[in-house]
Amino acid sequence: MDKLKFNKNETISIGKLSYISNDIYKLEVENITEDIALSGFYLLNENNDEIMGDYSKFTTKYKSTDEGNTYYISTGVVYTEPEKKEPEKEPEKVLTEEEIAEQKKLVLKFTKNNKIFEMSNACEAVIENGVEVNGKHYSYTVQDQSNMLNAMNLAKETGMEVPYHADGESCGLYNYDAISAIYIQETMNLTTNQTYFNQLKLYILSISDVDKTDDIA
């Protein structure tokens, strides 16, 4: 701690003097008022009270503070808040005709790919959903396709009825004519939807007019 002798106080004070710059110090000391703190002071030797530093010119309040018993003092310098500058707005970029055209091409390409993907999923869903034959529904997933083909071939080779089942029903016995009729309907449904999808896909891929993007979507 430091021993301080203020010009407006006969009593020696104990405090802490912290260097900030040649013209600014931070002073922490209790039991004095602001007018005493700003009256100028001397730093004393802690053993014999001899003057070790002359701070009589530090009579200006550099800035206010919420720190208790703390004063920022200077030889005349006063703190000023830095001016807040609004961030500069970047000028809005104006696209050239070439950039706009390139952007439209990218949007067209994305839209075409997205629509083809969407149609592919729809086509697959319709095929796997299957068909209705004689009031009963038969799905046609990849596993169903294999099972149905195996059943039909077995019925043809043996001339016997084979077990198969409609969706949500228990197994029944189907002769070759019955199982092949279902298989033919499933195959026709598959071929029709695959052909429809392929033709739409080719049509979409053939479009190069960027103004047709909304039509594709």
Rank of each mutant, 00 (worst) to 15 (best):
101 A>Q: 14
178 A>H: 07
46 E>Q: 13
103 Q>A: 14
121 N>V: 04
87 P>D: 10
160 M>W: 09
6 F>S: 00
125 A>P: 06
106 L>K: 15
208 S>D: 15
2 D>W: 05
131 V>A: 03
207 I>Y: 04
3 K>A: 03
71 Y>P: 00
96 T>M: 06
85 K>F: 11
97 E>W: 06
31 N>V: 06
124 E>M: 13
157 E>C: 03
133 V>F: 12
1 M>L: 08
147 N>E: 11
10 E>S: 13
145 Q>N: 03
211 D>C: 08
161 E>M: 13
116 I>K: 03
179 I>Q: 01
26 K>T: 03
44 L>R: 00
187 T>G: 11
108 L>F: 08
188 M>K: 15
75 T>D: 03
138 Y>I: 07
115 K>R: 14
97 E>V: 13
154 L>V: 04
2 D>P: 02
213 T>R: 07
167 D>P: 02
175 N>F: 05
212 K>C: 10
51 I>P: 05
93 K>E: 14
22 N>S: 12
187 T>D: 06
90 E>R: 13
31 N>A: 12
30 E>H: 12
160 M>H: 11
118 E>A: 09
83 E>Y: 08
143 Q>F: 12
183 Y>S: 10
183 Y>H: 09
45 N>K: 05
126 V>D: 10
149 L>N: 12
159 G>R: 01
12 I>C: 02
46 E>P: 01
210 V>M: 02
134 N>D: 15
135 G>T: 01
1 M>W: 01
20 I>N: 12
204 I>K: 04
34 E>M: 00
165 H>A: 15
81 E>F: 05
24 I>S: 02
72 Y>R: 00
15 G>K: 00
212 K>Q: 15
214 D>E: 14
55 Y>N: 00
74 S>P: 07
64 S>D: 12
119 M>F: 14
64 S>Y: 07
148 M>P: 04
45 N>E: 06
197 F>E: 03
113 N>F: 06
137 H>K: 15
58 F>T: 01
172 G>V: 10
167 D>C: 07
189 N>E: 07
92 E>I: 14
109 K>G: 03
160 M>V: 10
108 L>G: 04
20 I>A: 08
71 Y>M: 00
141 T>E: 06
4 L>W: 09
148 M>K: 09
119 M>Q: 07
5 K>H: 12
183 Y>G: 05
23 D>K: 08
51 I>G: 05
119 M>E: 10
63 K>I: 00
62 Y>F: 15
215 D>R: 11
198 N>W: 09
55 Y>F: 15
55 Y>L: 00
23 D>H: 09
200 L>H: 09
201 K>L: 04
31 N>Q: 12
148 M>H: 08
110 F>H: 11
191 T>W: 04
191 T>V: 13
97 E>Y: 09
136 K>H: 06
214 D>M: 06
197 F>W: 07
145 Q>S: 07
75 T>C: 03
189 N>F: 06
74 S>C: 08
66 D>V: 12
195 T>P: 02
89 K>E: 15
66 D>L: 11
150 N>L: 14
87 P>V: 14
60 T>D: 00
79 Y>N: 07
158 T>F: 04
16 K>G: 03
77 V>Y: 11
30 E>Q: 13
133 V>C: 08
173 L>D: 11
67 E>R: 05
4 L>N: 02
158 T>E: 02
215 D>M: 13
191 T>H: 10
5 K>N: 05
98 E>T: 14
40 G>I: 03
